[in-house]
Design a protein around this nucleic acid. Structure first.
Length: 577
DNA sequence: GCCGTTTTCGGCCCGACTGTTTTCAGTCG
């Protein structure tokens, strides 16, 4: 049982108590415990074994006892008792926008609704229109929200797919007789979500490899199997559950199989048409002419036979990648990234100190890092009041002075308020090294209002980058309505960058939007928005997204040297300040 | 439920937005 598992149980207890209508402060104390454990760097088992649970902030005798019970027995009696009173299917309804614990309780107690299907039926029948607290606008938001949830169901975020594929790939490579194992499909193309994982294996003994695969430790269900294929469900708790499709192919046709299974369908269709023009045929086993194999062993050979350079997987979407005159040869890579310009620490809602984040950035070989805490309006995220930011600035500057090997800058992730003004005065922003401005609230407005708001921030001489510009959360919240064309034009005109937030929950801007920005010559910044040292790794998802947007090194600000980033900031201030 | 004292219980919590219940409750980040 991991720290995250324990935290999850406490969060669940909090929600159940809330639905029951228990005292809000008591509810909050369980949330506090969950947060503390989730943020803990030590293993909760070790803390418990040392008898030090009570030393954790927010953990008193009651919670300590429950943690011991959970670690010892895998259960908490309070949770079991609550689940006997409150139907657990009710918890799923909380994912619907506008439904929190209070409305969930009303649905359950007054309408007898405890599941998503019942809720949908009641909405369709217009039964909720008369219920107190469920006005027409709320009902519309509810219906739209359910639609969105259903649309994103079954798709797994890239980050989770990546974790599982790394673990699973390692296990498969370690199997006897496996010469090569690679992932294909949307994961290889770096899509923001993946359906199944497509795994390809080269071996001389397919049957044996399939047999071993079906028996792998994390396989919980075999959906189908043959001598060369296996379709299974793997469960890597707590990362998640995924369907994995294994295909075993001979090494001689590995390239063809890899190409075929990487897709996209549209890309492969175009390739097949290209082969047909030459009187050939392209299939899963190779490029052939009347049964004679022209190319099959590597992707490069197949593309070359079709008079094409090898096309990187991230580009294989039939978005113009066959036009060799316009496809960039020098796509951005992870190695080009020289620093992170959007990082949180314990000074606001991060989990690691400035020193720890700097150490981690240094370990990645970064040349610079900018600390950007939340601003005062983001109270729950520990946003800093003006005086606190000034104190923090002095601290970070002092640390920067005694740190070698990396430049440490102080900035902010300042809130863009509803009217487009910023959460700090210009005089304060002017003292900072780099300013990210982001929208965190009131995203439900119309496109005109949202756009006006963001444009106003872009025009501020001290704003250098717009953070997660559309505010979407993959599978959870739609992007806000925004005129990105207008945003891009103004960003380009004023020398303001747009962020590709690399966190796999966001990937915002998304690939097409980043491509639009590039077309308008807007500089992009790829940032992790890291709240802990391990989140610096998220940068890889930002780079994948950037590649899908056809970005090259020159399109991305944080591939430039530190002095050039400073010059970028100085240029905007000089032009408008 | 936790905390911090005023050592025995009162205060904790975060503010904005939204829609609706028309004076505020519920949701959300």
């Amino acid at each position: 049982m991991t720290n995250a598992d324990v935290a999850q149980v406490f969060n669940e207890i909090a929600v159940l108590l809330e639905i029951k209508g228990e005292d809000a402060f008591r509810v909050n104390s369980y949330r506090r415990v969950a947060r503390t454990i989730n943020d803990l760097t030590a293993d909760i088992h070790d803390v418990a074994a040392r008898g030090e649970l009570g030393d954790l902030p927010g953990v008193g005798p009651g919670s300590a006892e429950k943690i011991h019970e959970l670690l010892g027995t895998g259960r908490v009696s309070l949770r079991e008792q609550l689940l006997s009173e409150v139907p657990d299917s009710l918890l799923r309804l909380l994912a619907v926008p506008t439904i929190g614990p209070k409305r969930a309780a009303v649905l359950w107690k007054e309408c007898g609704i405890t599941s998503m299907d019942e809720l949908k039926a009641a909405l369709a029948a217009g039964k909720l229109a008369t219920v107190k607290g469920f006005g027409p606008k709320t009902l519309i938001q509810m219906e739209r929200g359910i639609e969105f949830l259903e649309r994103s169901a079954g798709r797994t975020r890239l980050g989770m797919g990546w974790k599982v594929s790394t673990l699973l790939g390692g296990a498969v490579l370690a199997m006897k007789g496996v010469e090569r194992a690679e992932f294909a499909g949307s994961l290889r193309r770096g899509c923001e979500t993946v359906g199944d994982l497509d795994l390809l294996c080269a071996t001389e003994d397919p049957e044996q490899v399939v047999r071993q695969f079906l028996k792998l430790q994390h396989v919980t269900e075999v959906l189908s199997a043959s001598t060369t294929k296996g379709l299974v469900i793997v469960d890597y708790e707590p990362i998640g559950t995924l369907r994995v499709d294994l295909r075993v192919v001979p090494a001689a046709s590995f390239g063809a199989a890899w190409l075929w299974n990487t897709g996209s369908r549209e890309h492969v269709t175009r390739l097949r048409a290209r082969a047909a023009e030459r009187g050939w045929s392209l299939g899963e086993t190779g490029l052939t002419a009347g049964g004679r194999v022209i190319a099959s062993q590597t992707e490069e050979e197949i593309y070359a036979a079709l008079d094409l350079p090898w096309i990187p997987p991230e580009l294989r979407e039939d978005r113009g990648e066959f036009d060799v005159r316009v496809v960039p040869r020098d796509l951005l890579t992870l190695k080009h990234i020289r620093g992170d310009l959007h990082v949180h620490t314990t000074a606001s809602d991060g989990r690691n100190t400035v020193a720890e984040m700097v150490e981690a950035a240094l370990g990645r070989g970064y040349e610079y890092m900018c600390v950007t805490e939340h601003s005062q309006s983001s109270a729950i995220a520990g946003g800093l009041k003006e005086a606190l930011l000034i104190g923090h600035m002095l601290d970070v500057r002092a640390l920067a002075k005694r740190t070698e090997g990396i430049r440490v800058w102080i900035g902010t992730e300042v809130d863009i308020l509803a009217d487009g003004t910023l959460d700090y005065p210009d005089e304060l922003l002017a003292q900072l090294d780099f300013v990210v401005a982001s929208v965190h609230s009131g995203m439900g407005s119309d496109s005109e209002a949202n756009t006006r708001r963001t444009l106003a921030a872009i025009r501020n001489p001290y704003v250098n980058c717009i953070g997660h510009p559309t505010g979407r959360l993959i599978n959870e919240r739609e992007a806000m309505a925004l005129d990105l064309e207008a945003i891009c034009k103004e960003a380009a005109r004023t020398g303001t960058a747009l962020e590709i937030n690399a966190n796999n929950f966001r990937l915002d801007l998304k690939d097409e939007h980043a491509r639009l920005a590039r077309a308008h010559h807007v500089p992009l910044v790829i940032s992790t928005d890291a709240h802990a040292v391990d989140q610096f790794d998220q940068i890889q998802f930002g780079v994948l997204t950037a590649r899908r947007a056809w970005l090259r090194r020159g399109d991305v600000l944080n591939t430039r040297a530190a002095k050039d980033v400073r010059a970028f900031v100085a240029a905007k201030r000089a032009a408008q300040g």
